[in-house]
């Protein structure tokens, strides 16, 4: 199948949309650090994009606040398939220090399906890059599922 050949190239291009759903900003500056010269994720073909429609990966930081819940769902829907969700930071994974509140709906996997967790408060840029590498593998798997679903029709 020709498509399969084309798909082998896919993982080399990973476009990331970043959504802050209530994070303290610590993860966000580390994400910015990963696109800067020292860590430069563009050498792996990754880049941050400005619109969820262009993205392959949705990067979520923060425990989801009630205000952001609906918006996060909507962004998730706007990302075209195949897609992977990465949660960066402890608070998005479990709530961490924000374990109990009247204005939180999180953690993220309570709202949208999450594929990769990157732990740390905040994680180092290297850890974020590792998370993205895991996402690449998952993306490949998802694509195969897509292909199978397509073939069975």
């Amino acid at each position: 199948m020709k498509l399969t050949r084309a798909l082998e190239i896919l993982p080399k291009s990973l476009w990331v949309f970043h959504c802050n759903s209530g994070s303290c900003n610590g993860c966000d500056i580390e994400i910015v650090a990963t696109i800067t010269p020292r860590y430069d994720i563009e050498r792996f073909g990754m880049k941050l994009v400005g619109s969820p429609r262009h993205a392959d990966v949705l990067l979520v930081t923060g425990p989801v606040t009630k205000y952001m819940t609906e918006r996060l769902r909507r962004i998730y829907e706007q990302v075209p398939d195949p897609k992977v969700v990465i949660v960066v930071g402890n608070c998005g994974a479990s709530g961490d220090v924000f374990y109990k509140s009247y204005s939180l709906d999180g953690p993220v996997d309570n709202i949208i399906p999450v594929d990769v967790y990157v732990h740390g408060c905040p994680p180092r840029p290297e850890a974020i890059i590792e998370g993205a590498a895991k996402a690449v593998l998952l993306l490949e798997k998802k694509r195969e599922e897509l292909l199978k679903a397509g073939a069975s029709r």
Partner: peptide, 8 residues
């Protein structure tokens, strides 16, 4: 890579 990815 980007363009090919986008096509699929």
């Amino acid at each position: 890579y980007d363009v090919m990815k986008l096509f699929v």
